[in-house]
């Protein structure tokens, strides 16, 4: 396995990541794919809700909120150059 992969919920705010593997399954997986979260998609972490969870993520021009449990099933690779 690639050592550099982290899960999406570990992505710091305002940092970019690239999706490498989606471990979620069932309805959740389907829903994420439908929203355009597939392999190689660029994701940016935005703000976290007042209680610390869920977190908002931006990808493909839309903002989607995910709970930490769900985000932890999405493996990403940090992308250094933040636009």
């Amino acid at each position: 396995m690639n050592e550099n992969l982290i899960s999406l919920n570990q992505l710091p705010a305002n940092q970019l990541g690239k999706v490498r593997q989606i471990r979620s399954h069932g309805i959740t997986r389907r829903r994420l794919l439908d929203l355009g979260l597939i392999d190689q998609t660029l994701v940016k972490a935005l703000q976290t809700s007042p209680a610390g969870d869920p977190t908002a993520y931006q990808f493909r021009g839309a903002v989607i909120a995910l709970r930490a449990e769900d985000a932890s099933q999405i493996m990403i690779e940090l992308v250094s150059e933040s636009r």
């Binding site: 979620s24 309805i27 959740t28 829903r31 994420l32 929203l35 869920p54 908002a56 839309a62 903002v63 989607i64 909120a65 995910l66 709970r67 449990e69 769900d70």
Partner: peptide, 8 residues
């Protein structure tokens, strides 16, 4: 709880 996916 199931998953939570919500567009803002």
């Amino acid at each position: 709880p199931s998953s939570f996916i919500l567009e803002l």
